[in-house]
Design a protein around this nucleic acid. Structure first.
Lengths: 238, 238
DNA sequence: AAGTGGTCTAGACCACGAC
DNA sequence: TCGTGGTCTAGACCACTTC
């Protein structure tokens, strides 16, 4: 009785909204069972596939869980899935510090392991500084697999993210990304580049990008001045 | 010809795997158009709804984008949606420092704004210390709306996350969560609690939880010793 | 045996884009 | 006008849980 079929809003979405509202408003309590799919078909006067599609939206968001042979139950939404916004790209200027082919020897301790390469093999290193209102706010290093004969186009490097760089250069689609977020205090070269005092707080974001066969194809580290830059993440299931 | 209908694996999933493989392996290039749904029906000998369900998985993951009237195209997967793991809960001991009703006056500068309350109104403050192998690794404060007459059960507080606390106490389902991740250096009370030297790096995670009508129902801050604790996030669309 | 959710089909109509 | 993806239907069979 509630679904308008002439509406621009699809029927399945109206079903999701209607049931979602009952959950959010407390009419359907956490843990309780909702009416069966066939009952909902009658109630909303739509086919079972349409009901199921609506329920799927709420299930995906974590508001419902289903149990074969038993029923569909109300649960608490999940907040583990986040959308991360790397902030204010528009107002940031990127400055390419260097883009070079390096040999993964002692001075790049540990990088060859992260890229699953032998010690001494070659890689591409790209270093960039990011400015906001003429002040340096962050600084990154990215290491890519070295592919013989493939040039690195400087024009592409200014604002590109690691997955795009890796795809363009290695010609492999990235399928997995891992982030590690830590904090540190700025020392030596890092403090110098970011025009900060030693001992200031900084956010460190490490990213590893993998290809289909789980081999790493890129590794990067971004160091951000804590007062100028923070990471924001939102989770709103439905 | 490729889909086994007697398999335990649903036909729609096999379709997603088959097309996903062609994308990941490079057979279908980024930007190119894939065969139309009706063609895929013939190719895999399944109905259109089954094809569409398979394509929906890849679309959701960002490997495909669709355009009404034009077709379905290969694109780069999205890595903006992350699953964040708050690390090693199993091996961590929580110690309840305090759970009290406070008045949001001067000493809690700014909290009343974050909870959208008047200055001087009441709130619940819960403070906890987390230990790992007898060393303090993090410390949090959580502020909840004060509901008259609702007791705070200490037993629930040990390991509960902010959304659960907010739901239990305010009896409102949280529908949105915001995280703000920054870095700082430990000072004064924080350093003392975490048994650290002044000036050490720490990760700060702020969380605000909202109800359906966008009113905040809880605010929390976690301060983590950087050497002991880092945030890990993975994104693997499909 | 009856009811539940999970899968799948073979059609149908629609809005949109390209020709 | 034709082909495309987006929606929707009315059935069907299955595996599972409960009684």
């Amino acid at each position: 009785m509630e679904i308008s079929k002439s509406s621009i809003i699809p029927a399945y979405f109206q079903v999701a909204e209607a049931i979602g509202f009952k959950i959010k408003s407390g009419e359907l309590k956490t843990g309780s069972m909702i009416p069966s799919e066939s009952q909902l078909c009658k109630e909303y006067n739509v086919s079972r596939m349409t009901v199921r599609r609506g329920l799927a939206i709420l299930t995906q968001a974590g508001y419902l869980t289903t149990s074969k042979g038993k029923g569909t139950f109300v649960s608490r939404p999940k907040f583990e899935e986040l959308v991360v916004n790397f902030p204010l790209k528009e107002k940031v200027n990127a400055k390419l510090l260097s883009a070079e082919i390096i040999s993964l020897a002692d001075e790049f301790e540990g990088i060859h392991e992260k890229l699953n390469l032998k010690k001494g093999s070659k890689a591409i290193l790209i270093r960039r500084l990011f400015m906001h209102e003429k002040e340096p706010i962050s600084y990154d290093k990215k290491y890519l697999l070295y592919i013989k004969g493939k040039p690195v186009l400087e024009t592409d490097l200014e604002y590109a993210e690691l997955p795009e760089m890796a795809e363009k250069h290695a010609d492999v689609l990235p399928v997995k990304s891992e982030l590690l977020i830590t904090a540190t205090t700025l020392q030596g070269e890092d403090a110098l580049l970011l025009e900060s005092k030693k001992g200031e707080a900084a956010l460190v974001v490490e990213q590893t990008v993998y290809a289909q066969d789980s081999t790493p194809i890129g590794w990067g580290q971004t160091i951000c001045r804590a007062e100028k830059y923070s990471l924001r993440a939102v989770s709103q299931p439905f």
